[in-house]
Design a protein around this nucleic acid. Structure first.
Lengths: 222, 222
DNA sequence: GTCATATTGTGACCGATGGTCACAGAAAAT
DNA sequence: ATTTTCTGTGACCATCGGTCACAATATGAC
């Protein structure tokens, strides 16, 4: 009983650290939050934090992983919903994920941090692998919906899979970058929630259109 | 004569700092390069560096600006080339810029750094403005080519400008992220130059096709 | 209840880093 | 030759991520 209780307390402590960090992240940037501050706000010593995480960025990685898993659950739910057509599933996935990023600025920053080589190289390999695995599952869920769309005759089956995935994932990744407030040159373009919503709709329309369009080589004259 | 000579030496010194930094960047990441190291490798004192740049990241911003301007020159050259159709100009611009990122890993990292809110908030406002201005000019050159493509009947004029630019810029921005080695989940997908080249071609095809395709709403059934 | 042992939390400490500034030394002016 | 101006410098500071010897607490034996 006792060792079990200990373990639960240890895990509760870890949750505390993560929750505290999340709270701090609503008010300031990751870079300005020191480990000492996290420890103090959690009400523990700095050394204790390092009993739970190997390095500062592992805390960040853990939070990101939590978010990824939450999103993945929703994506899988969409993929399993047979009331929807493939294209509707695709649209639902894209809109859900982009809106998630829009609503959760801290997550936006985490995601972009994760794309930095230096960050990926520093976090524990365990976190790196889990994060990559989860992203892989995003893609699988998406491709499943695409396949459904093809069998239903909506998605164009002639688009090479590489071209399609290269385009869609790039557009998606870029949209997250562009959704940042002041994250791009046209600062005034992405301030209000309405503007961001409009942007999400445009970009999703663009991606959907790319999936259902006729093959490009019949139209383009080089 | 003397004050002039002084000024020239001062500027030469600045070039030295930048060149040294660029050299160091081929071997290690920006985060692991200390200002002290830059100063020592340039053969000057650390304090002198801060006579030229207000903060460490300003050096990075200056290098990025140099690259942006170099690219802009080429884009403008393409936009002014009347031997090319609008679509050819568009393709040239996209391929050139993406290949520039592919060949210049240091620039890739600079560009992604620039997308981070923390970085944009720290660098001098002068650099921020110049960088944003230059990006704005990228878009102008691109839109000029698109307009040419429309008048030539290749680019679909019915695509709402917002949808088009939202999609293209997102795809473009995302492609840069994806081009990173180990920058995304499928590590093995983007290692060799051939793979990256193939990726660039796919993603450019995708973007071009998006510009010349028929309006989406006539195809999609919601 | 007491002592011995094991486990876990802690904050002083370390090395490194970005940034500052008083001052030395060179150049210009007189 | 002397004063004045200006520029380069590195010692210095504050901060931060990370470590570890030790303290505090829990566990177990008798």
């Amino acid at each position: 009983m006792h060792p079990n209780r200990k373990m639960r307390e240890f895990e509760r402590r870890e949750r505390d650290i993560l929750d505290t960090t999340l709270t701090l992240l609503t008010g300031e940037q990751w870079q300005t939050i020191s480990v000492d501050k996290i420890a103090q706000c959690t009400g523990i010593g700095k050394g204790t934090v390092y009993k739970h995480f190997d390095c500062k960025n592992d805390i960040y990685a853990h939070l990101l992983l939590d978010n990824y898993r939450q999103m993945l659950t929703q994506l899988k739910r969409l993929a399993a919903d047979d009331h929807l057509t493939g294209v509707q599933q695709i649209r639902g996935m894209l809109v859900y994920t982009l809106e998630y990023h829009r609503e959760n600025v801290a997550h936006q920053h985490m995601h972009l941090h994760f794309r930095q080589k230096a960050f990926r190289e520093q976090i524990s390999s365990s976190y790196l692998q889990q994060l990559d695995d989860t992203e892989e599952q995003f893609i699988e869920a998406f491709e499943q919906a695409v396949y459904k769309g093809i069998t239903e005759g909506d998605v164009n089956p002639d688009i090479p899979r590489e071209t399609m995935m290269a385009g869609v994932s790039a557009t998606f990744e870029g949209a997250i970058v562009m959704l940042q407030e002041g994250g791009c040159c046209k600062q005034q373009m992405m301030q209000t929630a309405e503007q961001k919503d409009a942007y999400i709709n445009h970009v999703v329309d663009y991606m959907i259109a790319a999936l259902i369009r006729q093959p490009a080589d019949k139209q383009e004259k080089r």
